[in-house]
Design a protein around this nucleic acid. Structure first.
Lengths: 65, 65
DNA sequence: TACAAATGTCAAGCTAGCTTTACTTTTATT
DNA sequence: AATAAAAGTAAAGCTAGCTTGACATTTGTA
């Protein structure tokens, strides 16, 4: 899974800390997601989509398997 | 999170076992999801959406929190 | 009504997603 | 160049999502 989290965060002028707070997760989680270290839970994906006014599919890109 | 998995499964004439195989998970996982015992991983949500030709948002309904 | 297929329950174990804490490196501004 | 803010790294611990296996119940149909 790829994602455009960092791009969206910067486009919206947020720091990692600010984004973490808005999504109610730790800054570590933001870092890990931006770096593709692991995938978000579906709850976090929903919260992220809602925050940026996009669909999950627009933010998190599933690579076929 | 609510979901319409069971409805989709029956509408498409699948048993839990068949759906499990198509989604490459165990039958237990299908049961647990249908019963709302836990949420799917985002990967499983993507696979499910792809299988039924719907979006994640159409199958899994996030209840605000 | 017997039998098989489908569904459900229980429990123990593994790993991915997330947390916290503490420290280092990079980037920007003065 | 000094400082502070932002971003990155590392590691240990917790829990949700998933697995396997064994057994019980429900449903459908011969």
């Amino acid at each position: 899974m790829k994602n455009i989290l960092e791009e969206l965060r910067i486009k919206n002028g947020f720091t990692q800390q600010e984004l973490a707070e808005k999504l109610e997760v730790s800054r570590q989680t933001i870092i890990s997601l931006e770096q593709g270290r692991y995938n978000p839970s579906i709850i976090l994906a929903f919260k992220t989509a809602r925050l940026f006014g996009l669909t999950i599919e627009e933010i998190f890109i599933y690579e076929e398997g």
